[in-house]
Amino acid sequence: MNKMKSRQINPEKLLLSKWTAVQPANKEKHFLVTRLVRDEQEIVVACVLEAVINHREIELDWHLLKDASIWLPGWL
């Protein structure tokens, strides 16, 4: 049985980290975290990822980066 393990991520260290999309869309495979979105208490709630190939930005809940079926750390 294949159990998915949730990886530990420190949201304060996400800025400028590199990520690979497991199922790339529009040839967008490699991403760089360019901004962190914080709430009123300065807690990180989301991050902005920029596609390396075309510089398109997407904002997503940083917790989604823990899902190894969607994102892998680094550029593979």
Rank of each mutant, 00 (worst) to 15 (best):
I53Q: 13
V33E: 08
Q23D: 14
V44M: 03
L64Y: 11
E28Y: 00
E40N: 12
M1H: 05
K29F: 04
E28H: 03
H30P: 00
N26I: 02
K13V: 06
W19Q: 00
F31A: 12
F31I: 13
D61P: 00
E42W: 07
A68M: 10
D39T: 05
K27N: 06
T20V: 09
L14H: 08
A46K: 14
Q8F: 13
V45G: 03
E40D: 14
T34D: 07
K27L: 04
L15E: 05
K18D: 03
N54V: 08
L72I: 08
V33Q: 08
S17M: 09
S6V: 12
H55Q: 11
S69V: 11
A46I: 02
K18W: 02
K5M: 15
A25Q: 10
T34A: 10
D67H: 03
R56Q: 07
E57T: 10
V44T: 09
N2Y: 02
Q23I: 03
A21Y: 07
F31G: 10
V44I: 14
L72H: 12
V45A: 03
K5W: 09
L15P: 08
E12R: 02
K66R: 13
A25M: 13
L49E: 00
T20A: 04
N54L: 04
P73F: 12
F31C: 10
S69T: 15
A21F: 07
I58H: 11
I70L: 12
E59R: 15
L36Y: 14
K5P: 00
I70E: 05
M4Y: 09
Q8R: 14
I9K: 11
H63Y: 00
K13N: 15
N54H: 10
